[in-house]
Each structure stands twice: as structure tokens, then as C-alpha cells.
Design a binder for these strands. Structure first.
Length: 495
RNA sequence: GGUCUCGUGGCCGAGCGGCUAGGCAGUGGUCUGCAAAACCAUCUACAUCGGUUCGAAUCCGAUCGAGACCUCCA
């Protein structure tokens, strides 16, 4: 088996399947982005960090990737009974701002946070309001195919009709229509719908609405699920490789996307559905109402009551990747502290390997093949449904070996060292997207530290330990950690 | 109420029929003027009760417990 063949747990089929791109060497990915009505919370970040890692791995293997992640800036209702206020418009009234101001503010915030987590920007980041025409044409297509109906200026998807013509509604979330009917509640303002599980494609807007557009059915705005269907098909085609998002979007959002796409184009829009799991805080779900939540910036500044200190985005990213994306991950101060230490250890070895001047000496065959097989296992694990925790475990095993070499001798061949350097550094930087947290590390800073260490060395040589310890302790206080080797001294700058 | 998922050592977290996951913490050494870092060695596991199997954290059933979705959410 080739360990660069990717296997993906397809949540549509519930099976791990070998990934076969529609077009050889190309991969199209759509991930549901945020609704920009408030600051991104950490759970969102986990999803985007994971899909960033997925995209990075495809790049690493040489695929040409088109990664589309939308910005929802209209159409997302406060409740999903297709009745109620638009999230953006509600927040706009609350803050006395224009809807576009809200969108701008939180889009910028989102980008800033994503940047700090070292995620690569998507290749296309379309907005819902920028694709009203595409959404209207999609509604027209669905109407023409007979899977929607118009009532009082609104258009609804006709789930019953869809089922009657041999389609499945619930294939992704494993629900059947009886369950849905049994579980549905009586909500106000649903009298326009023929059936409770029908969902809005286009909503009529009354005078109180500030965000609205002309359409063949009068003035209104698009339904939430529609934008993803319209934009994914526009940029990736009616059928594309991978669709991702958080678990919680499986139903109803992704289910509706499938129905819409089939209703418009008569085919399932996606080959592989990938869903990342939730993030909990201290064992409980994050929720703004109970205060059980952390915002990214609170993490970076340490200002949350759930934390005893601040954590850098790299540490948080590393922490997230230490768990598999498909499981629930619990976030806690203690777990973060443990991760931070491990992260430092990993990154120290990264620096060591990256800058090591390797000279081939003797070769220990056993060590040599151990390094080779660990390098190979990084690909095997990453290809097996993006198993980042196992990849990290292999990297740590390499860390031990490398540190051992460093304190004894490097008993591997030239070519093995090159493989190690390429694989270890490649996985850390390019695949996992981890970066050393050293900030403001200008060459001037380094030169100054080296000068100070030079003075300390002199003091030590003169057995003036009072001076040498003072230098060391004061440097530690300002975040420079000293590591004395046999004949050299190295240092690490902590933030 | 309906539909699912999960219960792993002091903590986090992989594995999902036989082979040491890994990280953090702990313990004992080595190195060092002392530290730190690093190295070597080492201790704690698979919720409970049954069943299948030569063999089960891993499969099946029951019980208890936790969580998610069905309602805005990544």
C-alpha cells in the first residue's frame, strides 16, 4: 500500500474510503465558514484549524487545491424555523450600526484570529450578499424542477415532493421523515409552509427588514442553506470532492444543501463529507449563555477566568491537533499547560534538526532504519483519515532519537538525515502549520544575547559564579532560557 | 420523547481482536560548580456485569454514567 494514498472517513457513508479526486491531482474543497455577527469562538477555530491542516496535507502531497470557505453575511436566522430576525440585522440594531459595519468588523476579527492560528487563507472566500443573483437562479431552477413552491413572496423547498420522486432526505444525518415530523414543534409563523420540515429558499421581507433584495418573488432575502449550495457549485462545480464543516451543521444545514443541489442539478453535490467534532470546555459544551466559553483573544492574553495564564496560538493549535478531529475535545487549563510543555520540547528539536550541520560519521543500521520507518509512518498516519495525534506521536519518537544523537553522536547516514530533515520539518511547518512562538526575534536581539552569553562564559571560566548565575537568572526573568551544553550554550526565547 | 456518539492509567489523548501509542506529571539514576535542558531506567489503564473467541480496551448484549443533534451554533 502506498502511504500517500489518502483514506477519508466519509460521514455520508459512515465508512473510511480511499480518496479518489474527480480530476487527477486536483482537489476541490468547500468548508462552511462563519456567520460574522460576533467574534469567532474557539469551537469555530478548531474546525478551521483542522480543515487548514487537511488542505495543507493535500498541498504537501503535491495536489493542486482549490479551497473555498464562505462568509455568511446574511440569511442566517436567529432560529431555524424560518421565522425570526436575521442574525446580522439583529446585531446591527443592537449596536446601532449598519449591517455592513457588523460584517466588516467581525470579518476582520475572524481573519485576524485565523491568521494568528497560522491558517492559510482560502483560495476563494465568497460572501452570501455577493452572490444574490446566483442564489436567485438556483431557486428558479429548483422551482422549475418542481421541488419548491411560492407562498406570499417566499419560496420553500418541498421535502415531501422531493421524497416522492425517489430522493432521500436524511441520508447524511441518518434521520427519516417520520422522526422529523414527530420531533418537530409548533412554532409561530410557519403557516406558509405546507409541512414543518420544508425549509426556506427565499424569504419575503417586510418593511422592518434592513437587508433585502429584489427577486422574481418580490423583495426579500435568501435562506441560510442556499448560499453554500450556490457558491460551492459556482466555484467548484455541481459535483466536487470534499465538503467540510462542524458536526452541528450536519442537520439541518448540510442535509438541506444536499436536497437543494439535487433539486436543482439532479445529483449529489459532494463525494466526501467530512465533519469535525465539537470542542467542550471543562467537560461541558461551550455556551455563551452559561459563561462556559472562551474567546480566542482571551486565550492569547490570559484574561479568561478559566485560565491561569496566557497561551500562544501555536500552543493552542498544537493542542487541537493532538486529538483526532472526529472526537470531542475537552479544553482545560491543565491540558493546555501540559501541551505547552510538549510543544516546546517538539519545537526545540525542530530548531535543532533544521539548523544542524550534519556530517556523516558511523552508521548504526538499527537506528538508521528506525528513523526511516518513523518518517514513513508520518505519511501513513496522516493519510489514514488525517490522524494528527499519531503523526505527533511519531514526531515525538523522533525527538527522543534526535536528542539522543545530540548527546552522543549522529549514527545515521547522510541520506537518512536529509529524509529526517525534510519529513520532520515539513510535517511541523507545512502540514501541522506549527511555528515557533519566538516573536521580535531580530538579529539584533540575537546578537545582544550572544554577547551577554559570551560575558557569562568568561565569568564562568573565572569561576565567578555569582556573575554568571545573575546573568542566567535575569535572562530567564525576561524570557530567555539558557541551556548549557558540553562546550556550547544555547538559548530559547519564550514569549 | 426521538436519533446518535462516547466512557482508557494522576491528567490530556491515540489504538478498535494477539505486538511499548505519545505528551504532561511522578520516581530512581547520568551529565553540570549549582540550575535548566537533555539522556537512561521506571510506576500507575482500558466504566460495570455477562457472552462470542485459542485470545477482547478492541466484537455482541445488558446496566450505570457523560455528551451531541432534533432549536442559533463550527
Amino acid at each position: 500500500m502506498n502511504n500517500k494514498e489518502i483514506y477519508i472517513n466519509n460521514t455520508l457513508t459512515g465508512k473510511k474510503e480511499k480518496f479518489k479526486p474527480i480530476t487527477e491531482n486536483f482537489v476541490g474543497i468547500y468548508v462552511c465558514g462563519p456567520t460574522v455577527y460576533s467574534e469567532v469562538h474557539l469551537g469555530n477555530c478548531r474546525t478551521f484549524v483542522f480543515f487548514d491542516t487537511l488542505v495543507r496535507y493535500f498541498h504537501f502531497l503535491g495536489y493542486k487545491v482549490r479551497y473555498v470557505r464562505n462568509i455568511t453575511d446574511v440569511g442566517h436566522l436567529v432560529n431555524d424555523a424560518d421565522e425570526g430576525e436575521d442574525k446580522i440585522a439583529k446585531k446591527a440594531k443592537l449596536e446601532q450600526l449598519e449591517p455592513m459595519e457588523i460584517v466588516q468588523k467581525y470579518t476582520l476579527n475572524f481573519h485576524e484570529v485565523m491568521h494568528s492560528f497560522n491558517t492559510l487563507p482560502p483560495d476563494i472566500e465568497p460572501t452570501a450578499t455577493g452572490h444574490i443573483n446566483e442564489q436567485i437562479s438556483m431557486v428558479e431552477k429548483i422551482l422549475k424542477n418542481g421541488f419548491a413552491y411560492e407562498v406570499n413572496g417566499s419560496v420553500y423547498f418541498d421535502v415531501k415532493k422531493f421524497l416522492e420522486s425517489g430522493n432521500d432526505y436524511g441520508e447524511l444525518s441518518g434521520r427519516n421523515i417520520e422522526d422529523l415530523l414527530a420531533g418537530s414543534r409548533d412554532l409561530d409563523g410557519q403557516q406558509d409552509k405546507k409541512s414543518p420540515q420544508d425549509f426556506a429558499l427565499w424569504k419575503n421581507a417586510d418593511d422592518s427588514h434592513i437587508m433585502k433584495w429584489d427577486s422574481p418573488w418580490g423583495v426579500g432575502f435568501p435562506g441560510w442553506h442556499l448560499e453554500c449550495s450556490a457558491m460551492s457549485s459556482k466555484y467548484l462545480g455541481n459535483k466536487f470532492d470534499i465538503h467540510g464543516g462542524g458536526m452541528d451543521l450536519k442537520f439541518p444545514h448540510h442535509e438541506c444543501e444536499i436536497a437543494q443541489a439535487k433539486g436543482a442539478n439532479h445529483e449529489h453535490p459532494v463525494n466526501y463529507w467530512v465533519h469535525s467534532n465539537m470542542l467542550t470546555l471543562n467537560g461541558k459544551r461551550m455556551s455563551k449563555s452559561t459563561g462556559n466559553t472562551i474567546l480566542p483573544f482571551e486565550l492569547f492574553t490570559g484574561s479568561s477566568s478559566h485560565l491561569t495564564k496566557s497561551f500562544s496560538p501555536s500552543v493552542v493549535r498544537f493542542f487541537m491537533l493532538q486529538a483526532h478531529y472526529s472526537g470531542v475535545l475537552d479544553f482545560s487549563n491543565e491540558a493546555l499547560i501540559a501541551s505547552e510543555k510538549g510543544f516546546r520540547k517538539l519545537m526545540n528539536a525542530f530548531d535543532l534538526i533544521k539548523h544542524h550541520d550534519f556530517v556523516e560519521q558511523h552508521i548504526d543500521e538499527q537506528q538508521n532504519s528506525k528513523v526511516e520507518s518513523l518518517c514513513s509512518s508520518c505519511f501513513t498516519f496522516m493519510s489514514d483519515d488525517f490522524n494528527t495525534p499519531k503523526v505527533i506521536a511519531s514526531l515525538f519518537e523522533l525527538v527522543s532519537i534526535v536528542n539522543h544523537f545530540n548527546s552522543t553522536s549522529w549514527s545515521i547516514s547522510n541520506s537518512t538525515f536529509e529524509l529526517l530533515q525534510k519529513t520532520f520539518c515539513g510535517f511541523i511547518e507545512e502540514v501541522l502549520g506549527l511555528e515557533n512562538e519566538i516573536t521580535g526575534n531580530s538579529s539584533l536581539t540575537n546578537q545582544l544575547i550572544e554577547l551577554v552569553l559570551e560575558l557569562r562564559k568568561d565569568a564562568k571560566a573565572n569561576k565567578n559564579y555569582q556573575i554568571s548565575d545573575k546573568i542566567r537568572d535575569e535572562l530567564v526573568k525576561i524570557g530567555v532560557e539558557i541551556k548549557d551544553g558540553k562546550d556550547t550554550t544555547s538559548y530559547t526565547i519564550k514569549n
